[in-house]
Design a binder for these strands. Structure first.
Length: 573
DNA sequence: GCCGTTTTCGGCCCGACTGTTTTCAGTCG
């Protein structure tokens, strides 16, 4: 059973947490955390790297010691050091660090003085008023802990990007309504277009910060004010989303935008770079000694560090700083680059609009072509099309194209990949279609080996053009299928099949990291809406976000080419 | 624990806010 990178990262994180609570050297703790992050971001399984004789010490922040430990973890899923730590202290202490307001010092104190070693035990102690008796803890802290443990036990969740967006838009509008509060803009993971956001960071420019923060606390949706100072305020909205508003003077706007957009790892790397140049970088600007040298725009901040401006989606410390230094940043794909959409449903299966309505909606959004890809017969619950209904739809589309002016409709299907990897429609019919998207809609829990074999077989089918939502994850609802994505992506590249970035904000599948893997392997990607009604074409922006996070350029995206080029590419398959 | 066109030892990103202090530690982002 291969140990996946996420597990290795989790082990390293747990070691870091337990060392931290133990009071170990903070920089040693940081070394483990950095290593966890590096491994977690890796596109290739550590086991694979080792099998190819790669030296892990070539990775940043990993020396001889960590390389040895990581190899051990990759082999066994754990390592002696972690086992020793677990023998010395309750493993659940690590979990306590995830309770907001608790850091290593407090966790250690609570454990020593109260014997608290789980979130449940801490919640109980707070409820019984025992926490306030501990030195350094007071009534307020106890109340905070009570609330925080309660929320934690209820599992504080992250918010899907589209859900966060529903909060952002009216909030930004409300804040912008205050006189003297200018340029209210979201930063943080929302601006970086992560698939989910934990909380919302909003930046604004104002002379009177305290007044702006007060304005935030008076917002009608605020359930709870967490903190409120002169430059920064934190509130929790009804529904649980936490919002941070930071207010800066205009001269610091760019530096603050850079700072609060993150990611944390990107910021740390930038500040380190600044330091190496004898400069200091903080949210107010870039400074040589006390003298400000940049800060009013993000461009000026990056330029002061010898870097090109880096698009927010890339700011994860995954090589973008080196690329910006050497002029090798990608020209990321934009919404305007998309010429078409290759995955669209109609009311013939489980969509809500006609072929013509979908075509007109797509044309209104500037697309030149769409492929109608209704479900196939096996998906009875979605009204999947059998061969005769699909044949009729092909004719209907041909007739429609004679009337349409601004857009071309391609005939297609989203054909089911059956349990054994065969397809749900006969090859003769599939070969009549312009676009064949093949997707999994059942048997999600096959073993990794069987699931991978199943997908590889579908990829090898000569009629298939696109692998739809490759991992089948539903954010917050269904884990991705257990798949060897490296093999799937490599096979897609070899077969000339495009991998879909399904732009539905519930899916976002491929993920950003998989997009990056696809690019590395030379596989092409199709950014598709999977629209079920006319408004769903607007979801394409979410898919674009993931593609950009995965460093994709227009040439990497199948539906960024013209209709003529697309037809050529589909034929060559 | 990592790392080196200032270094193989001595550094390692930075500031805001809170609560419990009586001048600051802890936590967070």
């Amino acid at each position: 059973m291969p140990v996946v990178n996420a597990t290795i990262a989790a082990v390293l994180d747990e070691i870091a947490n337990l060392l931290d609570i133990q009071g170990a050297n903070a920089f040693r703790v940081r070394a483990y955390r950095n290593a966890a992050r590096t491994i977690g971001n890796l596109g290739t399984a550590v086991g694979t790297l080792l099998a190819h004789g790669k030296d892990l010490t070539d990775l940043p922040g990993i020396g001889d010691d960590l390389a040895r430990k990581i190899a051990t973890i990759a082999r066994t899923g754990t390592c002696p050091q972690l086992e020793r730590l677990r023998a010395d202290m309750p493993a659940a202490l690590s979990e306590l660090l995830h309770v907001p307001g608790l850091g290593p010092k407090r966790v250690k104190t609570l454990w020593h003085d109260l014997g608290v070693d789980t979130v449940e035990a801490l919640h109980q102690a707070a409820r019984e008023g025992r926490v306030r008796s501990v030195h350094g803890f007071g009534e307020k802290t106890e109340r905070r802990i009570l609330e925080a443990t309660h929320a934690h036990l209820k599992r504080e969740r992250r918010f899907r990007l589209d859900v966060a967006e529903q909060f952002v838009t009216p909030l930004v509008e409300y804040l912008s309504g205050l006189d003297g509060l200018d340029r209210v803009e979201p930063a943080g993971s929302f601006r970086r277009r992560r698939d989910t956001v934990g909380d919302l960071d909003i930046l604004a420019t104002a002379e009177d910060g305290a007044r702006a923060i007060r304005h935030l606390t008076q917002y009608g949706e605020v359930a709870d004010v967490v903190s409120a100072g002169p430059t920064r305020g934190t509130v929790r909205l009804r529904g649980g989303l936490q919002v941070d508003l930071r207010v800066v003077p205009p001269a610091s706007r760019g530096a603050a935008m850079q700072y609060f957009t993150g990611s944390r790892a990107h910021g740390v790397a930038l500040r380190r770079l600044a330091q190496s140049k004898g400069l200091k970088l903080n949210e107010y600007g870039v400074f040589a000694g006390d003298r400000p040298v940049a800060g009013d725009t993000e461009e000026s901040v990056y330029a002061a560090l010898g870097l090109a401006w880096i698009p927010p989606e890339l700011r994860e410390d995954r090589g973008e700083i080196e690329a910006a230094r050497t002029g090798r940043l990608p020209r990321l794909v934009t919404h305007e680059d998309l010429r078409g959409d290759l995955h669209v449903h109609t009311k013939a299966s489980d969509g809500h609009d006609s072929v013509e309505a979908m075509a007109k909606a797509a044309a209104a959004r500037g697309l030149d072509y769409i492929a109608i890809t209704d479900h196939s017969q096996r998906l009875t619950i979605a009204g999947g099309l059998d061969p005769s209904r699909l044949a009729k739809q092909i004719d209907e589309i041909a007739r429609l194209n004679e009337r349409l002016r601004d857009i071309t409709v391609l005939a297609g299907t989203e054909v089911d990949i059956l349990e054994d990897g065969s397809l749900d429609l006969p090859r003769s019919l599939l070969e009549r279609l312009d676009v064949v998207v093949a997707s999994v809609h059942g048997h999600f829990d096959l073993s990794r080996a069987r699931q991978t074999r199943r997908i590889l077989r579908a990829l090898e089918h000569p009629a298939v053009h696109v692998l739809g939502h490759p991992t089948c994850r539903l954010i917050d609802e269904r884990d991705p299928c257990d798949l060897d994505m490296q093999r799937v992506i490599r096979a897609a590249a070899a077969c000339g099949v495009a991998l879909e970035v399904n732009a539905s904000p519930k899916r976002l599948d491929l993920t950003d990291l998989h997009c990056r893997m696809a690019k590395a392997e030379g596989a092409r990607v199709a950014i598709d809406s999977d629209a079920h009604d006319a408004d769903d074409f607007d979801n394409l922006r979410f898919g674009i976000g993931q593609a950009r996070r995965g460093w994709l350029e227009p040439a990497d995206v199948l539906n960024a080419c013209t209709l003529g080029e697309l037809r050529e590419r589909l034929k060559r398959r």
